[in-house]
Structure formats: structure tokens, C-alpha cells
């Protein structure tokens, strides 16, 4: 079983806040982390290898410092890792990202399963997985919460589709995106950390991937960001005053007046 897991390095957004006075981002000690949803993707890849044998390759497209998350992936069970990094990849939208990732999957050789996170916390689109599947011509199943069985050419999956759980049979090769119910990611092992420390992680650029230059980075992106701004919040609550019972009565009166209750 050849498994590829796609991981993205993202800024640890929980630490990003807006300074209400200056309306700027407060970035104190903002550190880059692996996209939280992708840790479930990696864990599932490793578990599938433990069940069915084979190899797990972690792939990330990003700036050189994204190597850090690949090293973590090696420490937590990935067999190999490859970084897709090239100045020409900058500014890629989801399609150009999916295209670049697809070139790497092709270059890695025969692949049975590609696992992606459900969405990233910075771009937050969830589009890369399905687009990647379409470009590769693989089966696609989103929101997988359990890989029940892999049997020859098929796998049986459980997925959380809105309000319902579905059991699907999917033909391999396939791209799946996973939700966090699927597993609990393990911590790095000592052996893994030792291995990760000394591993060399190959870096593939536009040349190694033999990409079409018109399909990568900003050039290959159909979408353009033309403006970025801070959301405005103006409304201030009417803070109720007086004794608590009086506040509650006042509130109920207002809500009744407005026909809300």
C-alpha cells in the first residue's frame, strides 16, 4: 500500500489577534505549526500502513521552513517526506496547489491512497483534496471518519456527510479527506525523533516536478486576491443594569415586544 499524506504548514492562528486600538494584527511570537487537521491525515496513513503494510510519504508544498513539519511527520511515523518548494510556487490558489501536489504524487510512483486534512486553518477552503483527486483522476471521498476495510481494489469507508453517516465503497486509487473523529494522533516516538533528526528531506522545485509553468504559483491561479481588510465590528451591546431579576424581566419584555419569543 503506497500512501501519500498532504500536510501544510500554517501560522498558529489562535495566537493572532487584532489590536482594537490600532486595528493591526498582534503577532506576538507567532509560530508556524502543522495544520491541525492534517495530523489526523498523517495518523490515518500510518495506521493504514500498520494494518496493510507499505509506505507513507508525507508531502508538503511551502517555503523552505515548511521542512519542519515534515521532520515532525517523520518523527510520528511517516517513512519518507518530500518538500515542494520553489519561488515559482508562491501565490498558488487551491487549483495551482492541487496541480503541484498532483505532480509530486505522480513522481513518487504508483500510489493507492492520498490522504488530506479536511481543511486548512489559514486558507480554510477544503478545496485542495477534491481538486487534487480530479486532477489525478482518482476516486474522491470527503469527511472520512473511519476506514473500515481495504480489500483488493476497494475500500469501505464511513464518512460524516452533514447530518448523516454514510458507508461507501470506493475504488482505489483514491484521495480521501479526513475529519478529526477518525483517530487520535500519536506523539512522536524517540526512535522516530532520532530518525527525523538525521533524515535528508528532498526538495523538489518546478524543474524536478516537470510542471507546466503556466499552471503553478500565481501564474497558474485563476483567482486573485485584490483586497484584504479587517472585519469591522461596530455594534456594542446594551449592557443591562440593576438587580439580576430586574435585568431578566427587562430582557424578556424586550424579546416579547420584538416577537422573538
Amino acid at each position: 500500500m503506497n500512501i501519500a499524506v498532504c500536510l501544510k504548514q500554517v501560522p498558529g492562528t489562535t495566537k493572532v489577534e487584532i489590536d482594537p486600538q490600532t486595528n493591526t494584527l498582534v503577532r506576538q511570537g507567532i509560530e508556524n505549526i502543522v495544520n491541525p487537521f492534517d495530523t489526523y491525515a498523517l495518523e490515518e496513513g500510518v495506521r493504514l500502513r500498520e494494518r496493510y503494510g507499505g509506505k507513507v510519504t508525507a508531502i508538503s508544498m511551502g517555503p523552505p521552513q515548511a521542512e519542519a513539519i515534515l521532520r515532525d511527520a517523520l518523527a510520528t511515523g511517516a517513512d519518507e517526506a518530500v518538500l515542494l518548494s520553489d519561488a515559482a510556487f508562491a501565490g498558488a490558489d487551491t487549483w495551482a496547489t492541487a496541480y503541484t501536489l498532483s505532480r509530486a504524487v505522480d513522481k513518487l510512483g504508483p500510489c493507492d491512497i492520498v490522504i488530506c486534512g479536511r481543511q486548512t486553518i489559514d486558507g480554510d477552503t477544503g478545496q485542495v483534496g477534491p481538486e487534487l483527486a480530479e486532477i489525478l483522476g482518482f476516486t474522491f471521498v470527503s469527511y472520512v471518519s473511519q476506514v473500515e476495510e481495504i480489500d483488493g481494489e476497494h475500500m469501505r469507508l464511513k464518512r460524516l456527510m452533514g447530518e448523516r453517516y454514510e458507508i461507501l465503497e470506493a475504488l482505489l486509487p483514491a484521495v480521501i479527506t479526513v475529519v478529526k473523529e477518525i483517530n487520535t494522533p500519536r506523539l512522536p516516538s524517540l526512535r522516530g525523533m532520532a530518525k527525523a533528526k538525521s533524515a535528508t528531506i528532498p526538495v523538489w522545485g518546478a524543474e524536478e516536478l516537470e510542471v507546466d509553468g503556466n499552471k503553478i504559483g500565481l501564474t497558474g491561479s485563476a483567482t486573485r486576491v485584490i483586497k484584504v481588510f479587517f472585519p469591522q465590528r461596530t455594534q456594542r451591546a446594551e449592557i443591562l443594569e440593576g438587580e439580576l431579576p430586574g435585568q431578566v424581566d427587562y430582557l424578556i419584555d424586550r424579546l416579547r415586544e420584538a416577537n422573538l419569543i
Binding site: T13, T14, V225, K227
Partner: peptide
């Protein structure tokens, strides 16, 4: 960006 920013 987690609702911190809006993009057009």
C-alpha cells in the same frame, strides 16, 4: 485566516 481577515 480564521475570520481575522476578510479577502476580496
Amino acid at each position: 485566516f480564521g475570520g481575522n481577515l476578510m479577502a476580496t
